[in-house]
Amino acid sequence: MMANPLRAEVVRLYKNVPLLLRPPQLLYLGREYPKGGDYFRDRLKAAFTKNKSVQDPEQIKAMIARGEYVARELEALYYLRKYRALKERYYAE
């Protein structure tokens, strides 16, 4: 049985790789999820476990692209929340 060459990409997407040049990934981003970190972690683990038997490289690449999209959306959500908090703090309406 050969190891899948995309495995490293999937692990990088799931875990927070401690390199300064890489953006935080899903498990790290889920810590500040509005419904709680435990909720996000359980859902994330279920999603990755559900698709662990996929062997087609093209399908794996598509799933990685979707995961990266979700990571960018979470980052945007957090930036928007911080922006709104600062706006409320400094600009009275």
Rank of each mutant, 00 (worst) to 15 (best):
E9R: 00
R22F: 03
L26T: 03
G36N: 11
Q25S: 15
L44H: 00
Y33H: 05
V17L: 07
L19F: 02
E9C: 01
R31N: 10
L20T: 06
L44R: 00
G36S: 11
D42A: 07
P23N: 11
Q25E: 15
R41I: 05
P34V: 09
A8N: 12
D38F: 06
F40N: 05
P5G: 13
L29Q: 13
E32Q: 12
L29G: 13
P23F: 01
K15F: 13
V11F: 05
L29I: 12
A8I: 10
Q25A: 14
R41C: 04
K35T: 11
L26C: 02
N16A: 14
N16E: 15
N16H: 13
N16L: 12
R12W: 12
P34K: 03
L13A: 02
G30N: 09
V11R: 00
A8K: 03
L19P: 06
P5E: 14
G30Y: 07
K15P: 13
R7F: 12
R43W: 02
L6C: 04
L27M: 13
Y28H: 08
V11W: 06
R31Y: 05
Y33I: 02
V11P: 01
N16W: 10
L27I: 11
R22G: 05
R31G: 10
L13H: 04
Q25N: 15
Y39S: 07
V17R: 03
L26D: 09
P34T: 11
E9P: 06
R12H: 15
L20N: 10
P5K: 03
V11D: 14
K15W: 12
V11I: 13
A8F: 05
G36K: 06
K35S: 11
G37Q: 08
L44M: 00
R22A: 07
V10D: 14
L20A: 07
L44Q: 00
L19D: 12
Y14G: 00
V17A: 07
L13P: 11
L13E: 14
Y28A: 10
Q25L: 08
Q25P: 13
R31S: 10
Y14Q: 00
L13C: 08
R22M: 07
R12G: 15
L26Q: 02
P23D: 13
K35F: 04
P34R: 03
E9A: 01
R12T: 15
G30S: 08
Y14E: 01
P5C: 11
L29A: 12
Y33V: 02
R7V: 13
